[in-house]
Design a protein around this nucleic acid. Structure first.
Length: 297
DNA sequence: GGTAGACCTGGACGC
DNA sequence: GCGTCCAGGTCTACC
């Protein structure tokens, strides 16, 4: 029997709604189990990988069951990772500030967008989502975990930094991203990516954006997306999906450049919450077609 | 600062 | 079954 943890979440936290709020909940090693409405994942902890099932005990309270006994040190590590991926740091007051600007999501309580347990994982996931269709992103992440991760966990930066380009390309099918991913991992290993600085509210968004653009494989779209994953929602991540949304859902006309101009103007009133407003709008569109995300097969 | 073309893969399509 | 085309952002070279 493994370790069980009880985690206090904000009172308005709802596991199903808030986990199934961004595509990364469908990327390995994460998996949403529809019948039990629990999040299954694998954490690479200090003493090795541990499988975890995260369940909602009651509103504002989560239970986590591990498949092995984990040490006190690992428990602290796991709590930090779970808090990051579930955005438990975003308080009810934070959500209220967002809902004051965009009241459309107040009744449903939406606003927390699922992310990865580490920044490195978020950045790699973002790079593997560029210039491919979603099934390829799913495949790449699965293979990265299977080929390079310990017992199916997401590979650590040190492991990816030591990988060969041929392995990434041949076995993980990351294509031309092979060397970029290795260089990216090396930058994390070397400490070039200062997570504390990137997450510090005192660091201006513009400085974070400029820095992210220096990372291999990270362009304007990826940098903007990584910013929202850092909790900075002031930028729209402009990709073909957003342009489609502008045309089909918002009725904008013209060529892509004209549509993008209209998108900027449309979301400007949401100020520091632009990305969230856009994303929840688009997510609501997905759910209108496919049903609630926590029921997706 | 703007633009064209290469990068790689999977899927759709026509033959 | 095979070849061709297209979608998807980033990067580099060039103007």
């Amino acid at each position: 029997m493994g370790t069980r943890l009880s985690i206090v979440a904000p009172a308005d936290y709802r596991l199903a709604r808030d986990v199934c709020s961004y595509g990364y909940f469908r990327l390995a090693p994460d998996r949403w189990d529809v019948p039990t409405q629990t999040l299954h994942t694998i954490f690479d902890l200090a003493d090795g990988p541990a499988r975890a099932h995260i369940a909602e005990a009651k509103p504002g309270r989560l239970n986590v069951a591990f498949d092995r006994v984990i040490s006190r040190l690992e428990q602290r590590e796991a709590r930090a990772k779970i808090a990051r991926m579930l955005r438990l740091n975003e308080t009810e007051a934070d959500l209220a500030a967002f809902h004051a600007i965009d009241p459309r999501w107040k009744d449903s309580g939406r606003g927390r967008i699922f992310r990865s347990p580490t920044l490195f994982q978020d950045v790699v996931r973002t790079v593997t989502s560029c210039n491919v269709t979603w099934p390829s992103t799913v495949y790449m992440n699965r293979r990265l975990c299977e080929v390079l991760g310990r017992s199916g966990a997401f590979p650590r930066e040190g492991r990816l930094a030591r990988a060969r380009a041929g392995t990434l390309r041949g076995r993980c099918r990351v294509g031309y991203r092979d060397q970029r991913l290795i260089d990216l991992a090396k930058m994390f290993v070397a400490g070039v990516v200062n997570e504390h600085w990137l997450e510090d509210p005192g660091t201006p968004d513009e400085a974070v954006y400029k820095f992210l653009l220096t990372l291999p494989g990270v362009g304007p779209y990826a940098a903007s997306n990584i910013m929202q994953l850092l909790g900075r929602y002031s930028r729209l991540a402009i990709d073909s999906e957003l342009v489609r949304h502008g045309k089909s859902a918002l009725g904008f006309v013209g060529d892509d450049r004209q549509v993008i101009r209209q998108l900027h103007a449309h979301y400007e009133p949401f100020g520091p919450h632009k990305f969230r407003s856009y994303w929840l709008e688009m997510w609501a569109g997905y759910e209108a077609r496919l049903g609630p995300a926590w029921q997706w097969d």
